[in-house]
Amino acid sequence: MWTKKERVLAVLNGELADRPPVSAWRHFIEKEHSGVGLFAETMLDWHRTYDWDYVKLQPRASYYEEAWGGEFDFENYEGVLPKCIKGPVGSAEDLDKITVLPGNKGPFAEQIEAVKAIQEGVADGAPIFQTMMCPTSILQKLCAVNPIGRYRAASRDDLMVTLMHEQPELVHRTLKNITATMADYSRQLIHNGLFGVFYGATGLSRSTYLTKEEWEEFVKPYDLEMMDALKPCKIMVHACGLDVNPEYFAHYPIDILHWPESATGNPALDSAPRWLDRTITPMGGCDERLFGQHKADEIGAMTRNTLKRMKDIPFMLAPDCSLALNTYDDELRAFIMAAHEKN
């Protein structure tokens, strides 16, 4: 009988387990901003209800901006994002405010305590992955730029891209400060025994957003610094959206690469052996847009199709991104039932 941790470690070692490890995640916007206890209880309830093999934590999407002085109205959400009352960066002059912060204070301290509480409550040693955005994604959020929509065209007409061209040295200095802060936060998490990090590369690598040259200059160097700081955590990189170029990450020093094969312009999951470094485990397999639409049958069918295509390839089974707030229980049960079937 395989334990959850054994199942995850097997596929990360390039071996086939009894079945692929499976999990899913979503925001609980009414329970993510009221202290450690409620958030930890919510994540543990989600884990226990569906018996996930690994736990991808879903903290509120604003905790990075809060650390640098962002203010939010938690009674007024726009999707999964609380309404921003005050963004830390509105002009080039504001970048001076983005200094190096200790990784164990403020919202970071809250998240460290939440991880501790959740680690103590998981079943069967299920590995925990804390969500952490890459430094350039954090800068994007500090500039009050909404994350690039998963399945809508990206726009380059935003403050961060403008600053990259008008004040590149200042942007690099700011990214170094963010990276130093997140590296210290990483060390605190590692000290407390965290198994892994869900590292949100978001949609920065999309062909219609940053150019490859911009990505190489303003994203990749800081990613690699974070990869080094995160050792020995297992690193799960998530690239999100249309035309997201997961091959950019094909030789990163990471353990898992998660991308939406269901989005236009992205490679199929079962193509991974042809281009992905063999030490990196592919992850995905079900279009998250099916959830919240009473499409349990379609979810089950897509999951079975993925398992059939990937039967000889070690991988981690998951939706292609975060699930809808109105995801239904029968959809989740269909996903899990298909995932647990003997092939």
Rank of each mutant, 00 (worst) to 15 (best):
S207H: 02
S186H: 07
Y199K: 10
G200E: 15
F198S: 13
T211H: 06
L189C: 14
N177I: 00
I190T: 07
L189N: 15
F195A: 09
N192A: 11
I190C: 01
T202N: 08
T211E: 07
A201K: 08
F195T: 11
G196L: 06
N177V: 00
Q188I: 01
R206M: 05
K212W: 09
R187T: 04
N177P: 00
T179V: 08
M182E: 14
Y185V: 12
G203Y: 07
K212E: 14
T181S: 14
L189M: 15
L189V: 13
E214I: 05
F195V: 09
H191E: 15
A183H: 13
H191F: 07
N177Q: 02
V197R: 10
L210F: 06
I190S: 05
N177L: 00
T202V: 03
I178D: 08
T181F: 06
A180H: 04
G203V: 05
I178T: 06
G193M: 01
L210Y: 08
S205Y: 04
L204P: 06
T181A: 08
M182T: 14
G200W: 10
E213D: 04
L210E: 09
Y185H: 15
Y199W: 14
Y199F: 15
A183V: 12
G193Q: 03
M182P: 02
S205F: 04
Q188P: 00
T208L: 03
N192G: 11
N177M: 00
D184S: 02
A201N: 13
V197L: 12
E214H: 09
T179H: 05
N177A: 01
L210H: 07
A183G: 13
E214A: 08
G196I: 08
E214K: 09
R187C: 04
S205M: 04
T211S: 15
R206S: 09
A201V: 11
T179Q: 10
T208V: 02
L194E: 03
G196V: 06
G200N: 15
Q188F: 02
R187W: 03
G193A: 02
S207R: 05
A180Q: 11
L189T: 14
L204Y: 12
I190V: 05
G200K: 11
T211K: 05
H191N: 14
Y199Q: 11
I178R: 08
A180P: 02
Q188V: 03
